[in-house]
């Protein structure tokens, strides 16, 4: 079982996001990046499947900020091979183009299963996993929280609202958008990541040339103005507590 996991870095949302002078993009000079949370779950699920059934986990990423660190961290967690698709994507890339590059790369690497994160918060043209499935002509299920293998098929749970899930049986190869792995993603000790930098090698895989996407243009990027501004409750913790109690009383909640 060869499991392919495309992974990406996204801006760390704990930091202040600044819009650049064009008014259409984030100012990338000061962005801090972190691994997309759902990709950690996708990798975890892949590693769990490998531990259960054998095979290999192959992580692939585009040539973007901190790609090398992402790949070596994956090795430290247990991935077997790491690939980078060349082509400077530091300015970001839309999902349709990324999915086309992954489709080309996936065909040359080979795979039985592709696990992506369910989504990332930094792009507006959909989810790469499902686009990739369509470009490869493969079955797909998104928002997956449970995954097991039965012969040549995977049994997956897809989450709906209200805690309801649907169970599907899917003939492999397939693409799944992972929402949550069976358990909390493992942690990679810094020493192991450092070791991976020294001993592992990043392989290169061609993503082909991708025509510029069109169909929509960005007019502006802005911070949403909330219609309703919350009223600030300030002071020492005890003051704040007192004010909340008063307000609960006045609203008949206490």
């Amino acid at each position: 079982m060869k499991i392919l996991v495309p992974m990406k870095q996204v801006p760390d949302l704990v930091e202040e996001l600044e819009i650049d002078s064009s008014g259409k993009r984030l100012n990338r000079d000061f962005l801090k990046f972190k691994l997309n949370e759902f990709d950690e779950h996708a990798l975890e699920e892949a590693l769990l499947l490998k531990e259960q059934h054998g095979g290999e986990v192959v992580v692939v990423t585009l040539d973007m900020a901190e790609a090398d660190n992402l790949l070596f961290t994956a090795i430290a967690k247990g991935a077997d091979k790491i690939f980078k698709i060349p082509g400077n994507c530091d300015e970001g890339i839309d999902c349709h183009s990324a999915a086309q590059m992954f489709a080309t790369a996936a065909k040359s690497i080979g795979f039985d299963l592709i696990l992506t994160g369910v989504q990332a918060a930094d792009d507006r043209d959909g989810q790469v996993g499902m686009l990739l499935a369509a470009f490869l002509g493969l079955p797909h299920v998104s928002v997956v929280t449970g995954l097991s293998l039965e012969g040549a098929s995977a049994i997956v749970h897809k989450e709906y609202a209200g805690g309801v899930m649907a169970e599907f049986e899917v003939v492999l190869p397939a693409v799944f958008g992972i929402q949550a792995a069976r358990h909390t993603p493992r942690y990679a000790p810094v020493s192991k990541v450092r070791q991976a930098w020294k001993t592992s090698k990043i392989e290169t895989v061609d993503g082909g040339t991708v025509p510029a996407s069109n169909g929509s243009v960005v007019n502006r990027m802005f911070k949403p103005e909330s219609g309703k501004r919350a009223e600030l409750i300030e002071g020492s913790p005890d003051d704040v507590a007192g004010k909340i109690v008063d307000l609960l009383k006045s609203r008949g909640l206490l």
Binding site: L26, D123, R124, V217, R220, M221, P224
Partner: peptide, 14 residues
Amino acid sequence: LYAGKVDVESSITS
């Protein structure tokens, strides 16, 4: 986008 921190307005050109 960005978990509710930023909005993007685009025009459809196709």
